[in-house]
Simulated assay, not measured.
Amino acid sequence: MSVLAVAAGAALGAPIRYLTDLWLRSVLGAAFPWGTLVVNTAGSLVLGALLGLPLSPQAMAVWGTGFCGALTTYSTFAFETVQLARGGDARRAAVYVAASLVLGIASAWAGLSVVRALTG
């Protein structure tokens, strides 16, 4: 049952990631990987919030592993960082790495903190 739960969550997260990236590329252009930065930050926020909730292992499989796992993407982050650096834009690559780390960790912490504050 856990495999189906993960697959159900992933079936929601993956299209959201893809559509978010397409939309942000159309709005902001492709010079910076805004789509991956946004979905990784949002996924970190959601996962942090989930960690503050008393969820069953089944619910964590759907929403944590499935949804957040498919929404966020470390491999794309790594690929885009390498592409920026290989394209001669080491400064932009460094900004992307720093922003991804700071925003991801801060978002996870914020999600957890908000849930804890709301649930006492």
Rank of each mutant, 00 (worst) to 15 (best):
M1G: 10
S2A: 11
S2N: 14
V3M: 08
V3H: 00
V3S: 10
L4T: 05
L4P: 00
A5R: 01
V6K: 03
V6C: 06
V6A: 07
A7I: 13
A7N: 06
A7V: 13
A8F: 14
A11V: 04
A11F: 14
G13L: 15
A14I: 04
A14E: 03
P15D: 05
P15I: 03
P15Y: 09
R17Y: 02
Y18R: 11
Y18L: 11
Y18A: 13
L19T: 03
T20V: 14
D21V: 14
D21W: 05
D21L: 07
L22S: 11
W23Q: 02
L24D: 09
S26F: 00
V27K: 06
V27S: 04
L28Q: 11
A30N: 05
A31M: 10
P33K: 07
P33A: 07
P33L: 12
G35I: 04
T36D: 05
L37R: 04
L37A: 08
L37Q: 08
V38E: 01
V38D: 02
V39H: 05
V39D: 08
V39K: 07
N40G: 12
N40T: 10
T41E: 07
S44V: 02
L45F: 15
L45I: 07
L45E: 05
V46S: 02
L47S: 09
L47F: 13
G48D: 02
G48F: 00
L50Q: 04
L51A: 13
G52E: 03
P54Q: 13
P54F: 06
L55G: 00
S56G: 03
P57K: 12
P57C: 10
P57S: 11
Q58A: 15
Q58I: 10
Q58K: 13
Q58S: 15
A59T: 10
M60L: 15
A61S: 14
V62W: 10
V62I: 15
W63A: 09
T65Y: 00
F67S: 06
C68K: 00
G69K: 08
A70T: 08
A70K: 06
A70L: 06
L71I: 05
L71A: 06
T72Q: 03
T72E: 00
T73M: 01
Y74W: 13
T76P: 04
T76A: 12
F77R: 13
F77H: 08
F77K: 04
A78F: 01
A78W: 03
A78M: 11
T81N: 11
V82H: 08
L84D: 01
L84M: 10
L84H: 03
A85W: 04
A85N: 03
A85G: 00
R86F: 02
G87W: 12
G88N: 07
G88Y: 04
G88S: 11
D89S: 14
A90K: 09
R91A: 14
R92L: 14
A94G: 14
A94N: 08
A94W: 14
V95D: 07
V95M: 08
Y96W: 02
V97K: 02
A99R: 12
L101V: 15
L101C: 14
L101E: 08
L103I: 10
G104Y: 12
I105C: 12
A106H: 14
A106C: 15
A108E: 03
A108Y: 07
W109E: 13
L112M: 10
S113Y: 10
S113A: 15
S113C: 05
V114H: 09
V115A: 06
R116N: 06
R116D: 09
A117I: 08
T119F: 12
G120D: 07
G120K: 05
G120E: 09
